[in-house]
């Protein structure tokens, strides 16, 4: 059932956009990130202190591989969603706003791809 008027749809106002799903996904990723932060903290700590073979051995344990990849997907998505809100709050000019949000989304998509490829390369080493 769609209660919006034709004019509202054409103008792209209100619920014609995707605010509800943005809000919801921000919460879903937030909840997922609470337990997964354990793997980020462990990984960072290892990267500061552990010898090379040690961190490789940790990363190729299946539960660690899965959880660090899950953390990456949730965290980069969560960051892009959050930065979008910050941009929308402080950038008034519509054109600049759209370009900034797209730049953030594409950048974080590329960053998570680079990180994913790195994990796969590590699995090949180990």
């Amino acid at each position: 059932m769609d209660y919006r008027s034709s004019l509202a749809k054409v103008r792209g106002l209100g619920s014609a956009k995707s605010g509800a799903s943005h809000w919801w996904m921000q919460r879903v990723t937030a909840v997922v990130l609470i337990p997964l932060s354990y793997w980020l903290i462990t990984f960072l700590s290892l990267s500061f202190h552990a010898p090379y073979q040690h961190i490789i051995a940790w990363l190729i344990v299946p539960v660690n591989t899965v959880c660090i990849i899950a953390w990456m997907l949730a965290a980069f998505y969560h960051a892009a969603l959050g930065l979008q809100v910050v941009i929308e709050d402080y950038v008034a000019a519509e054109g600049v706003k759209i370009i900034a949000v797209w730049t953030v989304n594409i950048s974080f998509f590329m960053l998570v791809l680079v990180a994913l490829v790195a994990v796969f390369r590590i699995l090949l080493i180990g």
Binding site: M72, A79, G82, L83, L111, A115, A118, I125
Partner: peptide, 21 residues
């Protein structure tokens, strides 16, 4: 939140460095 988002770049650098050998 904004600072942590920037910090994600460091994560990518570290993970890539491990993959690099």
């Amino acid at each position: 939140g904004v600072l942590l988002s920037i910090g994600l770049v460091c994560f990518v650098v570290i993970m890539s460095a491990i993959a690099g050998g």
